[in-house]
Design a protein around this nucleic acid. Structure first.
Lengths: 141, 141, 141, 141
DNA sequence: TTTT
DNA sequence: TTTT
């Protein structure tokens, strides 16, 4: 039976997206994302940061490589995937990644000056009058 | 700036979906969904039910009309939309609906015997080997 | 059976929170929140804004009244609740609200200058060494 | 600045919860959870299963150990945490877990016959008349 | 009634 | 490795 596997993150990019083009022309982008949580312990303010490996595919990777940069605040929606790989010493290792299905840049107007708009994969199949889906794909402008 | 407007529900359909075909061939389906919360008040178990107006468009409406029925347990993801309309006495009224962007039937295998599969609008642009997106649209089988 | 009723919003406050103290000392705060979606229609960038009625109770209302103001960007998590009331002409009306269960201020450092920190109802029951829950309640600093 | 780190899963337990009592009396429970996704590839129905490591602390661990069993369908809400540990050969390894903050048993009424109710950490600070929070903690019945 |  |  089908299940649900959903991740919602708001955090800052630790690095610029790294873009690769696979055989067959598929684009993949990835970057680390930090989500910080601040809490109080015995009167002291403590910050705990969690790092996430974000992976984006195809059109979403292209949009990300254009509009996301180190330090930006971004909302990311995606799913968890754990995959195995062999390291240099041929030891089998596991890594858990967040495969993004959607993202939106957050932040101030000034943050957008060189990056006109940021919502990726917009969905608005919900207007009574709109005769067909937005055909422009991932670029929302 | 872009924002986020997301609703996640798990509940039972109060009625079969009601399907309409608008001018221009657009399909819309709608149904009430109940989400129940059980809690304890002064030692007594209390159940509180919230009713939601679910609306689905186009392909998602078609899939819903085939696979969702009164009583089924379903996961729904969508967004809030409040719209105004005039009632019979021409009084302006407002209603808040959940416009579904995705749904998945939950429940037992036996529940699926006449409805092979239930995940709508699957997204899996995340396999290294998969050369192109699933082209079958909303029908996941 | 239990269900799920969850709303996740990122948007800007349309007004300062309005705070009321009910009989019995319970505090309630409420404000309108705008979530904007930008999309492309026939080459033109279109913005669609949805307004949500946010309601907060007790400790969360107190924190909100201190740290949230008109214009601020905030992440809100809560649940949908539709309630009925009688208007001035004693006509029964319905309104759907988002009852907040959690919120986090988003935005730049400069936004926080007069509002030290913003995460409400922090949860971090997840450290191996931490012997008991944070006892300071809603104030995260 | 604060961020958001949220995971939402619906899936089946791969094993019964494993419960441990740490020094200091803290209870921890953990189990693997499978989320399956069914999609169509070249006309063939393909099921892809993702496994998640779920960890629960304190009261939530106690409730989980009572009501969750291998095979049960459960909704889980929590956050991602990657931690390092040393394996038997003293090699440093990393594992990503979902630290549950909330869970709800899903499924048929018959599934609950020996486990009356399943919503953990209920929140309903939202009734106008309710003078104080549910004081019974994690046990919702 | 917010924001970009 | 981000941010406040």
């Amino acid at each position: 039976m089908s299940g649900i596997n959903k991740v919602i993150l708001v955090g800052h990019l630790g690095k610029d997206p790294e873009v690769r083009h696979l055989d067959g022309g598929v684009t993949v982008a990835s970057f680390p994302l930090a989500t910080s949580e601040t809490y109080n312990k015995e009167g002291k303010r403590i910050e705990q940061t969690e790092w996430h490996n974000i992976v984006l595919w195809r059109g979403l990777a292209e949009v990300a490589s254009k509009y996301l940069q180190k330090g930006k605040l971004v909302y990311i929606e995606g799913k968890l995937r754990t995959r195995s790989f062999e390291d240099k010493e041929r030891v089998k290792k596991y890594v858990t990644e967040v495969v993004a299905e959607n993202f939106t840049l957050l932040g101030r107007k000034s943050d957008f000056e060189n990056t006109p708009v940021a919502a990726a994969t917009p969905k608005h199949e919900n207007d009574y009058v709109e005769p067909e889906d937005n055909a422009t794909g991932d670029l929302p402008f």
